[in-house]
Design a protein around this nucleic acid. Structure first.
Length: 285
DNA sequence: ATGGTCGGTTGCCGA
């Protein structure tokens, strides 16, 4: 049974609740990683989301930031905040272990890896994180430095996570477009926030650890954006960037069946400025 | 060379 994992910068869960619920009902993702929920945990519209069949893990904050994990499967082992950046109290990182109970018959080896005979967990798991990388403000500003340091701290933590040899999906608003084809006007935008070589270098450093950009791995030549500026009618002119990503561990990338960006919610009234990015992983039989 | 538009609990700031 395949499972679908999506990441979506929702830009306020309360302002966007009907639109978010409509998409959840329509797309039926198993796991959703939300950013910019902009709500403290006691203000998160939990019942409305739970009624759609999701368990929640929240790391909220007033006015700014806020991340969440929605999952149709159990969420265990939740961590809030990047362990490698303890001084940062912004709600920009939440991690959890999804127990894929009920998805039986992991692989062909009945509890063993068919080639190595290594014992495999009886219940398959997928570790996920919902990540909201700082926007960075002006290039060279204090905020820009914080963005670069956040990306470095994320790399350091990802290094530890990858030692676990698990299925892992690090999803979120990275606020970095990886390459020229990921922005509408590379020449004009080069060196600006979200398309700066120092940001791209740090995003690639994550990939060098062995993490795979799900969308780009599946569609090497496709130009599709995940964010369009409200200002200057970015959506209407398709002036966008691909800055939301799902980075997969080797174990998850091996299970990658498909990926995409669902830009239909972006064209609707009261839309977030970001579109959901998703991938489908083949888990079990 | 600078504005445009959103969301928050707001008379501005962050994106």
């Amino acid at each position: 049974m395949p499972i679908t994992v999506a990441t979506w910068n929702i830009n306020s869960i309360r302002a966007r609740l009907p639109e978010a619920c409509a998409w959840l009902r329509e797309a039926q993702p198993d796991i959703v990683l939300l950013q910019e929920t902009k709500a403290e945990d006691h203000n998160f519209p939990a019942m409305e989301i739970e009624d759609l069949g999701y368990n929640l893990a929240l790391h909220g904050q007033k006015t700014y930031n806020g991340v969440a994990i929605l999952s149709k499967h159990r969420i265990e082992d939740v961590t809030r905040g990047l362990p490698t950046l303890p001084e940062n109290t912004d709600a920009r990182y939440i991690e959890g272990l999804i127990s894929l109970k009920g998805i039986r018959d992991w692989g062909l080896g009945i509890g063993k890896d068919i080639l190595t005979s290594n014992p495999q967990p009886l219940i398959p798991t997928l570790r996920v994180a919902s990540i909201y990388v700082p926007n960075g403000g002006e290039v060279g500003s204090e905020k820009f430095g914080q963005k670069l340091r956040f990306l470095e701290a994320l790399r350091l933590h990802a290094e530890t996570l990858l030692l676990q040899d698990e299925m892992l999906a690090l999803g979120g608003d990275y606020n970095v477009a990886p390459a020229d084809m990921d922005v509408y006007a590379p020449a004009a935008l080069r060196g600006t926030t979200c398309f700066h070589p120092e940001e791209q270098k740090r995003l690639r450093a994550l990939e060098y650890l062995g993490l795979t950009d799900a969308f780009r791995a599946r569609y090497p030549d496709r130009q599709q954006f995940s964010w369009w500026d409200y200002r200057s009618s970015g959506w209407e002119h398709n002036k966008g960037m691909r800055i939301d990503h799902l980075l997969l561990s080797p174990q998850a990338a091996d299970a990658l069946e498909d990926a995409g960006i669902d830009d239909t919610p972006r064209g609707k009234p009261k839309a977030s400025d970001h579109a959901p990015v998703w991938c489908r992983l083949g888990v079990g039989c």
